[in-house]
Design a protein around this nucleic acid. Structure first.
Lengths: 194, 194
DNA sequence: CTCGCTAAAATGAATGCTCATTCATTGATA
DNA sequence: TATCAATGAATGAGCATTCATTTTAGCGAG
């Protein structure tokens, strides 16, 4: 039987290889080698090269959503939720550099394709941010005149750029979290944080 | 004589083609066709495909730097400088969508290469932001406890993500500028903006 | 002004290499 | 023994780059 295990092994290998070489420079044979299977075997589990990339995303993004949702649901304070999201994203990108590279690079490159192919799991992830902001507004903790969609993009962009630079130049996570938290609590907040 | 004009024509064509298809999916023959020259002609002006991409960047980034520097130098108020940078970046990305796509997509893909190849013109562009923040701190307008490097990335990330989404879904520029200005004035500012 | 000559620029078909994908064969399992 | 997974060599399409040939431009002599 086609094993789930092998499916996962290929995804894991692909994540590594895509991160290292980028989608277009990655060879199927590289992935096969990394996964310790034959080239042809990959085509028993995936339709083609792009399908592998999309599977890597879908799976990893779902994991991100699950993890951070759990953390967010366990917290009532909306300011703290903001910090939790920031920390979790940066931490996840740092913990899984290959994934981070794939998100940074390939999310861009293939976002059009992804948009067309499947319902956009990544959009769901971004909407977790929107939910936090809306909740804060409802409670009067965040300013009412924020455009939630723009604010959401702003925060994600900031996190993404910050984590992108880290891939080159590893820095202090806690420092970054507290700086970003400070910035966005003041950016979003109805009152000033010192 | 090899004409400067033709050099520019090829860069212009390449910008369009890269934007539409991405670096790896762009064919030299596509660029040649768009520029109305023969495939071989391109190799009289550029060493290879990557060299074309790098030239596109270098040229366009320099233009960005020049334009915004002029605007910034004409303004004394540091809060207004912040707004000027925000507006100019978004405006530039909107005005020149092909360039914007190239920056969004290819900056990521090839940033490693770029870092190695030439002195990083793009870093210079980012440092314009850093300069604004530092100036604001020196004047007591921005909080002294900001990490300038992180703040710089945060703002650029926000701008980049915002403009990226626009490529798909065109929205109101002034609205975005005022929202981002509000967010970052409060994020950076020593006192709250209402 | 115009012909001949030269050198540089432009051309685009041909080359040759790089892979994604396929599929005939082999191996494993029950 | 039958079925299904796995293999990896072979295929063939795609495309960056080259280069033999053609075109253009500049210039001096008649």
């Amino acid at each position: 039987m086609k094993s789930l295990d092998k499916h996962r092994k290929i995804i894991l290998a692909a994540t590594k290889v895509f991160a290292k070489k980028g989608f277009f420079n990655a060879r199927i044979s590289d992935i096969a080698k990394e996964a310790k299977v034959a080239d042809g075997t990959i085509y028993l589990y995936f339709a083609n090269k792009l399908d592998i990339l999309l599977s890597v995303f879908a799976q990893e993004t779902e994991k991100l959503i699950e993890e951070v949702s759990t953390l967010l649901n366990a917290e009532a304070d909306v300011q703290k939720k903001l910090v939790i999201f920031i920390r979790h994203h940066l931490q996840a990108m740092r913990k899984n550099r290959p994934l981070a590279e794939v998100i940074h690079i390939e999310l861009r490159h293939t976002s059009k394709l992804i948009r067309e192919y499947r319902t956009n799991t990544f959009g769901e992830y971004l909407n977790l941010i929107a939910a936090i902001i809306s909740e804060g507004q409802a409670q009067g903790v965040f300013r009412a005149d924020l455009d939630v969609q723009l604010a959401k993009l702003t925060l994600f962009g900031a996190l993404d750029e910050t984590s992108r630079i880290w891939l080159v130049n590893s820095a202090d996570l806690d420092h970054a979290v507290s700086q970003l938290a400070l910035l966005f609590q003041n950016a979003f907040g109805a009152t000033k944080v010192q």
